[in-house]
Design a binder for these strands. Structure first.
Lengths: 132, 132
DNA sequence: TTATTATTAGTAATTATTCCTATTAACTAA
DNA sequence: TTAGTTAATAGGAATAATTACTAATAATAA
């Protein structure tokens, strides 16, 4: 089955660029606000559509933290996250589970594990210190 | 700071019972539907309110899988999840990360890690076999 | 009992996201 | 280039999930 041909549009490349450059993990609404500065006529629906498409293509990642709406992450390599419940900051952790851990669960279940999401929650260093 | 006194109501105990007994990880809407069978006048807002309260008290857990709405889990001990992208089933995995893994990330960050959420995604045994 | 007020039912309002449609613009082949 | 095809867009309507509001109810304390 041939995949639908995909056109390259200003809107799509701006959405990708915003997420790729973002140090935070922006929501669709935040991407939209930034995008409007570069392309004032871009519509919210277009931002949503392109975020989904780009995620499907693996060029960005969707991340869902507890108590939050869907966010987007420009870091595509495997990694984990830490979320501070006090200030809300999200930090990328450039680590991943040992392959053996994943393989062990996979064989226990008899399933195929394609990916996983690991998020740590707590209080970041900055908030910890300012509370002391 | 004294916590608000909490009354015990039929509604609250039914919501807790439903989540605790559920083998699936029901959404608020699903809990509501089941609750109506036992208490036909219970309202959806009451279900939502009590799910939050019970989660806050640690009697149930909120879980959020990708592409899904918020769900509730009656298993309160530490555990992980596997979600099948084909049939949607969610399996509880009675395992947890080694304390050393968590401690290492905690010290790398200088943060306090209070909890984490680890969800595996893939294809369950049943779906894998029926596809073969 | 009676008084107090946490909790509720029912519904309105809000938030996040998706759907719809006429129009625009990216690509293709002549 | 230019014309034809159709993917993609803007803008707004519609939907889904959740929260807010309020008068009435019922759990607890005195």
């Amino acid at each position: 089955m041939p995949s639908t041909p995909r056109r390259s549009t200003k809107q799509r490349s701006i959405v990708l660029e915003i997420v790729a450059r973002a140090k935070t993990h922006p929501t669709a609404e935040e991407v939209f606000t930034i995008a409007r500065k570069k392309l004032p006529e871009i519509s919210l629906a277009t931002v949503y559509r392109n975020l989904h498409l780009l995620a499907e293509e693996g060029k960005i990642r969707e991340v869902q933290f507890e108590g939050s709406t869907l966010r987007y992450d420009g870091m595509t390599m495997e990694h984990e996250h830490f979320c501070c419940r006090s200030c809300g900051v999200v930090e990328d952790l450039p680590v991943s589970l040992p392959a053996a851990t994943v393989a062990s669960i996979q064989s226990q279940l008899g399933a195929i594990i394609e990916r996983y999401s690991l998020d740590y929650y707590g209080v970041c260093q900055r908030c910890k210190e300012s509370a002391a």
